[in-house]
């Protein structure tokens, strides 16, 4: 018989792995992606494929020639970053911009800090915000949703709901359209229902906990509700705010990114409330019609602080009032 193996307890492992979790998130994104493909057709397909392929390629190259560690490209996190980046872009954006966005997301947002697990900011959002600041025009003209459209760069454009609210023009889509996703917007953010299906999948598979998405959505609902009650002329109803823009996608998929979110339930609630407040402040009072990306990045910066000062509830701890 071979030598017996000695190791400290526990002697069994749950079988969870990084690639399993990443694949789980990718599966949860499939409904949102399908809705994007349905409404934006060819453009959505091109942007998604480019983003995923270039993210994976950049991670592979950087890992191989610069970091020189064991290659982590197979764990699926690069593909996930690419997918999230694509879902945050308008579907009529030129391919070369997508490639630049991927390079920034992977190169600056993730690998420059040492790879998965060490990045302080959500890489996909770094890519998106970089593009938004560098190419504001391309990043803020969204195509009109046309089922199975074959148009790409030449697609007819439409404003987003939030832009309509901000600049007081146009007719806000019906709540049902908002819910299904029949409106202008980024590739993956339009359909609230598809994202909610993804959320349910993530919760059932125990990939994330409810704390972050629920606290963000609840904060935005309450805050915009107060504003709406104070001045319905100027501020849209909380339902419109919940279902429009990148809020759903941000709350469910971007803010819950493992690496950049706090690590205990109490901290997660603080983080979620912070994102909600900053989002509404930017949407209601800022220059941009949309603020989820910035809100998440700002709270990402607070995550280490939250982790240090907000501790989980210890067993047997008395709640101090």
């Amino acid at each position: 018989m071979d030598k017996l193996i000695i190791s400290p307890a526990p002697h069994i492992h749950g079988g969870d792995s990084v690639s399993k979790d990443m694949t789980g998130v990718i599966i949860a994104l499939v409904p949102a992606l399908l809705v994007g493909l349905y409404f934006f057709g060819l453009g959505a397909l091109v942007v998604t494929l480019t983003a995923v392929a270039s993210c994976v390629l950049f991670e592979y190259l950087i890992q191989k020639f610069m970091l020189k560690g064991s290659n982590t490209v197979m764990d699926g996190s690069a593909a996930l970053t690419g997918l999230l980046l694509a879902l945050n872009l308008p579907s009529n954006i030129p391919v070369w911009m997508v490639v630049i966005g991927s390079l920034v997301a992977i190169g600056i947002g993730k690998m420059s800090f040492g790879g998965l697990g060490n990045n302080p900011f959500n890489p996909a959002l770094i890519g998106r915000v970089f593009l938004l600041i560098s190419f504001p025009v391309e990043m803020t003209t969204w195509p009109r949703p046309v089922p199975f459209s074959a148009a790409y760069l030449d697609a007819e454009t439409a404003p987003t709901t939030l832009a309509m609210i901000k600049d007081h023009f146009g007719e806000i889509p019906s709540t049902l359209d908002l819910f299904i996703g029949n409106m202008g917007g980024s590739l993956g953010e339009i359909s609230a229902v598809a994202i909610l299906i993804g959320l349910v999948y993530l919760l059932v598979k125990k990939i994330i906990t409810w704390h972050i998405p629920v606290s963000i959505l609840a904060t935005v609902f309450v805050f915009t509700g107060i504003l709406n009650l104070a001045n319905p002329e100027l501020y849209a109803s909380p339902v419109v705010h919940l279902f429009s823009g990148g809020l759903m996608l941000g709350a469910v998929f971007m803010a819950t990114d493992y690496v950049t979110s706090p690590m205990n339930p109490r901290g997660m609630l603080v983080y979620g409330v912070g994102i909600g407040i900053i989002t509404v402040v930017i949407r209601a009072f800022g220059a941009y019609p949309e603020g989820v990306s910035f809100a998440i990045l700002i709270m990402n910066a607070f995550t280490p602080l939250i982790n240090t000062y907000i501790k989980p509830k210890r067993f047997g701890e008395k709640v101090k009032i």
Partner: peptide, 22 residues
Amino acid sequence: PRMNEYDGVKHCFIAHNLYSGE
């Protein structure tokens, strides 16, 4: 001669606390 194989963290103190050695 080695009689067992240690498969924990490569850290003498941890191995020492666990058992006497390979």
